[in-house]
Design a protein around this nucleic acid. Structure first.
Lengths: 123, 123
DNA sequence: ATTATATGAAACCATTTGGTTTCGTGTCAA
DNA sequence: TTGACACGAAACCAAATGGTTTCATATAAT
């Protein structure tokens, strides 16, 4: 029972803007390749390759219907991303906390309105 | 006032495992390049290039201290990722809702324990 | 039976990526 | 002042990436 040796992971899959566009498009409904590719300024074959990369990352599922292959979004693998992100939330939450304390202690904080994150930079 | 023409965005920056490792390492404390690169099985120059890509995406900040350049994590740009992700949360939340309804209506749902997401697939 | 449609596979190509080694320069230490 | 250290820049390279065109095959329609 070897690990599938997944060539493309979720991080790589979403790195490309075309593939992010694909995910958005496929969220609404299942669609065959020709219809999908009509939304992009590149060949059907190129879109097909992007779809394969998304499929390898588990982000889309395909289903054969007659002579067409329909694709649909499979959002579940994005949970890995969410988990990864959650680790870093504490860092920007820290920043907001620092800001909050600063504002609470300083009446003359009006200028913070426009560049709060810069101003509270610990550096 | 042209847009900075940012060559690398956050999605690309985090696509590489080495760069994700760098972010994790720099979360705890500011560190100079030599120290950072001692944690990686590649040349200092290679690590330096990864740091530049992270800097272009705004994910690290650098500070010159004597002859060294120290880097630190800057988590704020990850909020863009969070916003992007939040759009897709409804998709897996939908799945969980479907599962929930299914479980509530069906007493014989024991087998769901191991592959709930597959079983509730709308297909 | 023949033709048209939907798709994937394969070969190919230019550019980007992730790494290397070498060299130059600024800064600290003896 | 003479090394040693920290670093970036540059030149280089192999492999991956994102695209193309062409061809083969399965299914649908006439």
């Amino acid at each position: 029972m070897a690990i599938p040796a997944q060539k493309h992971d979720v991080f790589q899959a979403i790195a490309d803007p075309t593939r992010r566009h694909l995910l958005q498009l496929l969220g609404d409904q299942e669609m065959p390749v020709t219809v999908i590719s009509s939304h992009f300024p590149m060949s059907r074959t190129a879109v097909s390759k992007h779809l394969r990369i998304l499929a390898e990352a588990g982000l889309v599922k395909e289903r054969k219907v007659g002579r067409e292959t329909r694709y649909r979004l499979e959002a579940e693998p994005l949970m890995e991303l969410k988990r990864w992100l959650s680790y870093y939330e504490r860092y920007w939450e820290n920043k907001l906390n620092v800001l909050k304390r600063f504002v609470e202690q300083d009446d003359d904080a009006a200028e913070l309105k426009f560049t709060p994150l810069e101003v509270v930079d610990p550096e």
